[in-house]
Nucleic acid binder design. Structure first.
Lengths: 235, 235
DNA sequence: TCATAATACTTGTACGTACAAGTAATATTT
DNA sequence: AAATATTACTTGTACGTACAAGTATTATGA
């Protein structure tokens, strides 16, 4: 069970960023500094930093250093940081159901892991507003087995993903999605203030995380007439 | 205008793959072979191969070698290889308009580059079927200035992106997308054999390519009731 | 004072070496 | 004949060195 040196450095630095010891915009120690501090060569230091770059925790600047980045690479459709950065600034959130023990919903469209189904489920539901316009209803399910004390406190900066990262050091590592255009049901048309029968974008997401025991299932219902759902991708 | 060595090797190998001199499943020359053939060190050879890995042209296998991969990483929503691999096998395509000189459509929802607007436009339009069910109408626009002889021959293996790669050595490097749920217009309901007023998923895509002068604009109208649009992403 | 040069940092590329570890065919032993 | 050991490859990790090139501050000279 021996870990390689570059992974050790990589994990150390990642942890420091997650704990907030290095904030967005800060520069990590230089390669030479890492060499001295951890008794490694530049090859090893660079490999650790290159890995952080690949995961887009940092960006490297020739002649300057490695700077901590805002980590919002697109995971398919949505940002890992959640809804806020995807649309804009004037975002408000209303909890319809605060996080609490619940049941795995039958409306989950993607296959749910056996393991998840056999463990306790935490559920919460929100509506997102741009200004005073509701634009998305969001239902979320996940297994509570790996998140002790989750129900005891509020979200960090109002963000579920930030809470995962800063409190539990869990990162989103992937997702699968299904997209459907549907007609709004009675409930959704009420909540989203649109006429029944309006078209609605239904997104079913399964998020994978750095903890193999934690997957997050979300069903999103989006009003796209004014704010289309957007996404970018670059190699 | 000096190129680095690892980029030289990287481009050479990429070209060989694109030309088909190395097919999917083939193994590239080993690191030591590259060292001998190009008079470089393993550091440099590895860097070139690592770059190809990052672009997912190859996958490396400890103790075996570097194998050419099927390149179908998701670019946001759709595969770079196009629609075929996204849904399944039983795909048919019907051209409503074969590629020909056309005008930049007013229905393009993403911003079109100034440069593109000022050059000749090639347009083509297709309908995709799963079995005998139409599932997507696809409108495509791009500047013809960088694709000589494009109108003279058919698509390679019926795929636009494969034609770009194999004939012109141009790869997709990114995309931006906008998604909307809409009600099918008269025309779309006819073409897609759904009743007028059915919900439809409207995807507006701008593809960026390895040639800065070539961007591809697509407007996709998808029937998602049976075949939802899917996508996966992993770090 | 202000433009220029020197400097001390940073990361980027490339060299070379050594050994660990995975793979697969061949040779050896039981 | 079958299990085992050897071997010759492969990629992975890590060491060390050298110089190029970008950045920013400090020192110098007109």
């Amino acid at each position: 069970m021996k870990e390689t040196k570059y992974k050790e450095i990589h994990n150390y630095l990642k942890g420091q960023i997650q704990k907030g010891n290095y904030q967005v915009g800060d520069y990590l120690p230089s390669e030479n500094e890492l060499c001295a501090r951890f008794s490694i060569t530049r090859t090893t230091a660079r490999k650790a930093l290159d890995e952080l770059t690949r995961e887009s925790f940092i960006e490297r600047q020739h002649g300057k250093g490695s700077r901590v980045k805002e980590r919002r690479q697109s995971l398919g459709l949505l940002n890992v940081k959640g809804f806020s950065e995807a649309v804009g600034e004037n975002i408000k959130t209303l909890f319809l159901k605060k996080p609490a023990a619940g049941k795995w919903g039958s409306e989950i469209m993607v296959p749910v892991n056996e393991n998840d189904l056999n463990s306790d489920c935490i559920y919460f539901e929100r509506i997102r507003f741009v200004g005073y316009e509701p634009v998305m209803r969001e239902k979320n399910w996940f297994s509570g087995q790996v998140l002790p004390d989750f129900l005891d406190s509020e979200f960090i900066e109002g963000s579920f993903f930030k809470t995962l990262s800063k409190k539990y050091f869990i990162e989103i590592t992937g997702s699968t999605q299904e997209l459907r255009a549907e007609l709004a049901c009675e409930k959704n048309s009420q909540l989203l203030k649109i006429s029944p029968g309006s078209p609605i974008l239904h997104i079913s997401v399964k998020f994978y995380t750095s903890n193999p025991k934690l997957n997050i299932y979300s069903e999103l219902y989006c009003v796209t007439s004014v704010y289309p759902v957007g996404n970018s991708y670059f190699i």
